[in-house]
Design a protein around this nucleic acid. Structure first.
Length: 151
DNA sequence: GCCAACGTTGGC
DNA sequence: GCCAACGTTGGC
């Protein structure tokens, strides 16, 4: 089982929004490293930790699964969208998305503060590359996070 | 609201 | 292709 961590601002889109929608396109990724991962590394069946950023208590709050391969992100073509990219066009899309399905909301969200306080997580991308929006989570770390989150 | 980190842009 | 300037992210 391969694990990822997707960041989202809960004021914009939260794990509870995903629970209501069940399946949702993960829109608005506009970073080349993240795009590379969505295009060639993230696969259907992979698990996705949902992380809430830019909020009172940044934390890993839930789990989802990837249910599609990469698709053009339609918001890039929409002039009314905050994710509009005038350099993109449908013949040559610049940005992709994958669809995710809600799996669970954690009973005990694992806060960034907790993760930073544990030396075992010092090599986690959430710590070493906090701005990257599509992050890898090695299996051992994923199991540690799940154990704390479901406690 | 501040500011450090870091990704992107664009001139050369 | 380098790198300075600039813009954005996101924790605090």
């Amino acid at each position: 089982m391969r694990y990822w961590l997707f960041k989202t601002e809960p004021d914009e889109y939260s794990v509870e929004d995903l629970r209501r929608e069940d399946v949702s396109p993960w829109e608005g990724i506009r970073n080349f490293q993240a795009r590379k991962r969505l295009s060639s590394e993230v696969k259907p069946g992979d698990r996705v930790f949902i992380y809430h950023s830019s909020c009172k208590t940044p934390a890993v709050v839930g789990l989802a699964e990837v249910v599609s391969g990469p698709e053009p992100d339609p918001t890039q073509f929409d002039p009314a969208s905050p994710y509009h990219d005038e350099k993109s066009n449908p013949a040559r899309p610049r940005w992709v998305l994958v669809r995710v399905r809600f799996l669970e909301t954690f009973s005990s969200p694992v806060t960034l503060k907790t993760i930073k306080s544990m030396p075992v997580f010092s090599d986690l991308e959430l710590v070493t590359r906090p701005r990257l929006s599509i992050q890898q989570v090695p299996t051992g770390h994923a199991e540690r996070i799940l154990a704390m989150a479901r406690a």
